[in-house]
Amino acid sequence: MEKITNFFKTFLLFELVKGMALTGRYFFARKITVQFPEEKTPQGFRFRGLHAQRRYASGEERCIGCKLCEAVCPALAINIETEEREDGTRRTTRYDIDLMKCIFCGFCEESCPVDAIVETRILEYHGEKRGDLYYTKPMLLAVGDKYEEQIAKDRAADAKYR
């Protein structure tokens, strides 16, 4: 019985028809391919991209040098040094994130008591040398300054879940 079925399948090009049917179905279906970089996928407000250091509206940097992010970082990507500033507060003299080490887990922003270190929605950054992706404090602050509006909006959106 089996032999007979195979015989007819071979001669009637059944597999071909089946394959073409699939092709035909997808030919007319709605396309899901995104034309990156012209087109972009939607992002959630919790998107974890490039890091940024934020400031208060007064221009004062938020980071208090508590080093919780450094302690929690599973990839040991953060490096902080602190000292007492003239006004008696603790401030960082060095705040580096090695993006080559970073695994974008988001623990740093989660641990930050003052929302100083955050991850932005930026994912299209690059470096031409390996050292380019070693972000220092001024670089992080610059990112923060540039995207503060978006960052603040995202924090506000997330606030009620925290």
Binding site: G65, C66, K67, A71, T82, E83, E84, R90
Partner: peptide, 9 residues
């Protein structure tokens, strides 16, 4: 010592 390091480091 103030503010130069944290205990766990």
């Amino acid at each position: 010592f103030r503010f130069t390091a944290r205990a766990w480091e």
